[in-house]
Every structure is written in structure tokens, then in C-alpha cells.
């Protein structure tokens, strides 16, 4: 579904990602683990075309998206929930979700999105900026789903969210995958969450993928070593 091959990304002269190779199959949930500064967010931004790619390629279903702009990548089926949520705070909840409809061409917010996040239906007339952190996270996911994605990218979705809601979020992500048959790539620092949600766990260290384990045979202590400071 999503194929990243030999991806190099640099800010000016300093290269941050040194040739990543990742393939994500349809319906798979992949967690990318790593400490701060190892390149998780840069990878996400490069996938969305927010940070330019130096060399290598990213393709969706065989379609090369490396040279495309963000909105064109969204049209190809990539959707993005950034770190810090980045919802449009002065717009209402409903309007926030509707911004995602531009890409999918829909008119009204699909019912199943509200079924997934009933709290958003309750608060649809509130301004996005006045929601709590957890609600904003749900809103950001709903907005991404409104674009009708094939691959959903989430950048540290658990950051700044209370533990009970983190477990809830893992369930929601799996439900989204099961109902919509889409692939999910989630970058994470919280190992328990990654183990909860993922089919496969990658570890990124200094801009390179150093481990790639299926969920079933994973050695937790080995992965945790890369996360502890």
C-alpha cells in the first residue's frame, strides 16, 4: 500500500533520515518507535510533503507521490494527524471535519465518523480550540478520516493525553482499521500503546530503521532499550 524506499530527508545540509525502507501492507498497523530527535516527526512530515525529500521515493499503491504537494498526496489517499493535533481552533468542530471533505468531494460529514466519535457530534457547534486535548485528538482523527484515506499517519497521538483515554484510542484505531480496511502508521514513544495497537513495530534510531519486529514475536526489553534514556 505505502512503500518508502531509500528515503533521504535533510534540513538544509544536515541530513536527518539516511535511507529508510518501509513497506506497509493494506490493513496493517505499523508503529514507529524512537526517542525524541530520532526522526519520527520528520518522517511523517516528509511523507506528507511538508518537508522536502532529498532523494529516494514514496509511493502509494504504486503511484509515485514523492514530487507531489501535500494536497495532491491527500488526494492519493494519505491522511495526517500531526503532533500537537493542529486543529483549526477558531472553526467549529463540524467545520473542522468538513475541511477534510474537500479532498473526498463529500458534502456532509459522513455518519460513521460521528458514530466513531459520538462526543464530536455532541460538540459539533463548539469551536475546536475550546475542546479538551483528548477531544481535539479525536477531532484531528475525524478530520483525517473525512478525506477518505487509504493510509492514516498519526504522529505521537498519545502525547499529552491521560492514560485511560490512551487505551480507548488504541481500541478506536483498531476499530477504524477493521471497519475501513485502511493502513495505519503511528509514531510513538509509549511502548504499551504501540504493543496494544500495532501489528508490526519498527524502531527508528538516528534516522535509520534498526529493528523491524512483528507484534507476535517481539522482545519487549530489546525494543525498550531504544526508548529508555
Amino acid at each position: 500500500m505505502l512503500a518508502i524506499s531509500n528515503l533521504h530527508v535533510a534540513y538544509g545540509q544536515s541530513e536527518v533520515l539516511h535511507g529508510l525502507n518501509v513497506a506497509v501492507s493494506p490493513g496493517e498497523i505499523v508503529a514507529i518507535m524512537g526517542r525524541n530527535g530520532m526522526g519520527k516527526t520528520t518522517l511523517m512530515k516528509a511523507l506528507m510533503g511538508i518537508v522536502p525529500t532529498k532523494s529516494g521515493s514514496v509511493s502509494m499503491n504504486g503511484v509515485e507521490v514523492t514530487g507531489l504537494r501535500s494536497y495532491e498526496r491527500v488526494a492519493q489517499g494519505l491522511a495526517y494527524v500531526p503532533q500537537g493535533r493542529m486543529i483549526f481552533s477558531a472553526m467549529t468542530v463540524e467545520e473542522n471535519i468538513e475541511t477534510g471533505l474537500v479532498a473526498s468531494g463529500g458534502k456532509a460529514v459522513p455518519r460513521d465518523i460521528y458514530e466513531l466519535f459520538p462526543v464530536l457530534l455532541e460538540m459539533k457547534a463548539r469551536r475546536g480550540g475550546n475542546l479538551s486535548g483528548g477531544q481535539q485528538q479525536q477531532l484531528a482523527v475525524a478530520r483525517a478520516l473525512a478525506t477518505g484515506p487509504k493510509v492514516l499517519l498519526l504522529d505521537e497521538p498519545t502525547e499529552g493525553i491521560q492514560p485511560s483515554i490512551i487505551r480507548e484510542m488504541a481500541r478506536t484505531l483498531k476499530r477504524i482499521r477493521d471497519e475501513r480496511r485502511l493502513s495505519i502508521v503511528v509514531s510513538e514513544q509509549v511502548l504499551s500503546f504501540a504493543l496494544d495497537v500495532a501489528d508490526r513495530v519498527l524502531v527508528i534510531e538516528n534516522g535509520e530503521i534498526v529493528r523491524d519486529d512483528p507484534r507476535a514475536g517481539i522482545n519487549e526489553t530489546e525494543v525498550a532499550k531504544y526508548l529508555s534514556i
Binding site: 501535500s70 491527500v74 493542529m86 475541511t99 477534510g100 479532498a103 478530520r143
Partner: peptide, 24 residues
Amino acid sequence: SRWGRQVRAVVQNRVMAGAVGINT
């Protein structure tokens, strides 16, 4: 209007507006 929503989204966060599929 649909177009106005796009305008307001771009105004608030140009990068993010692009990442939800708006041609900024």
C-alpha cells in the same frame, strides 16, 4: 460556503490546511 471554510482553514494554519487536502 465550502470555499469559505477552505479560506479560513488556510488562514489559521497554512501547512495543516494543505495536509487535509486543500490547495492552499
